[in-house]
Simulated assay, not measured.
Amino acid sequence: MFLAWKEIRYAKLRYGLIVGIMILVAYVVFMLSGLANGLADGNRKAIDDWEATTIILSEDSNKVVNASQLQQSDMNRVTAKEKAGIGVYGTAIEKKSGGEKTNVSIFGTANDSFVVPKIIQGRLYQKNNEMIVSENLLSEGYRLNQLIKINDRLLKIVGISKATTYTIAPVIYLNPTAFKTLKYGDHSSGAEPINMIATKGQTTITQQKGQTKLEKMTPATFIENIPGYTPEKLTLNTMIYFLFVVVTAIIGIFMYVITLQKTAIFGVMKAQGVATSYLVRSILAQAFLVGIIGVVIAVGLSILTSLVLPSAMPFAIHHTQWLLYSVILVFVAMLGGLFSMRTVTKVDPVTAIGGE
């Protein structure tokens, strides 16, 4: 390590270029990771907040909630410690006075359901023209006791819950009757339609002939089938994995070129009795230091960047994942350093110093 650090300090420009490239690649890795996590969390946060153990949809929905059509009466076929029938609806809202519209995700369920979040301001909805909204909707200019327009109907914000999102949109909760009117209009039948049933505890389903078949799944399976969730995550993660390969190649090429330039020096050191294993360890130590310095600076830059990103750009730091990526980046940097090992081991002291 001493020899490695000594050489890095001596050839600051040369190794500075390698560190600079390492910083840039690692910075892209952490930024892509933050964006991928932000998108994933934005799609699933409200579902995670429920802490449900099972999600039930209609069997013919192909695990997609918007394609699942159930009725409140279907809850009688489900046995669980706690259960909640939920209608799901994505639409846009605007202030009573007009202005820009804001996309939201609406959940229609009874106000005593376990999925309804705790209120941090105001109260729970009681009437058909009342609702509660997630706190992140306040940044769009909405406030407690304000009337808002949804599908030409006026509803009042009577409560505010903690910030959350579903399909990258703030969340609204209201009662099943209000949900039915908003989604299906005034002339819909008397039954209260829902899209899903969420449960806690051991869950059993009674399938009845002539009725919609029900399918239960874990919340993780439900989330994976949210439209766009899995393709977005897979695409961004693939880019991150490709960058690991890029780091290996870049560090390997740079270290190989530097090693070739030091062939004569290595020859002299071997002639003086320096072991080949010591020289190999020195190269690996240089790659390790390059990786550590690059990753630490890249993490710092990524955190600073996250502080100035607009609120419309979802970004989330998962510390465990970033730690894992940091270890992988340092490891692949050292792997790149191994490319030079063969060159070092084959150096002949006599040939390297110009002998016959």
Rank of each mutant, 00 (worst) to 15 (best):
Y184M: 08
L35W: 10
L147D: 15
G228E: 06
I106W: 08
I250L: 03
K83C: 02
T53L: 04
V116A: 05
H319I: 14
I23H: 03
A220L: 12
I303S: 07
N103H: 06
T91W: 02
I250D: 01
K81Y: 00
I55C: 08
I292N: 11
R153K: 15
F244G: 00
P314F: 02
Q69L: 05
I250A: 01
K63Y: 07
V28T: 05
E135P: 10
Y166W: 12
Q121S: 15
K180P: 00
D49R: 09
A271H: 10
Y125D: 09
T54D: 12
Y173C: 02
P227E: 13
T320F: 13
A198K: 06
L324N: 12
L309G: 10
F315Q: 11
T305W: 05
Q208E: 15
D41W: 09
I265T: 15
E356M: 10
V268I: 15
I223A: 15
T238N: 02
K346H: 14
M255F: 03
L57H: 11
V290C: 04
T212L: 06
E224T: 07
I303W: 10
S340Q: 08
N195V: 04
S306W: 10
L304Q: 11
I297W: 04
I8D: 04
D152M: 13
F179W: 08
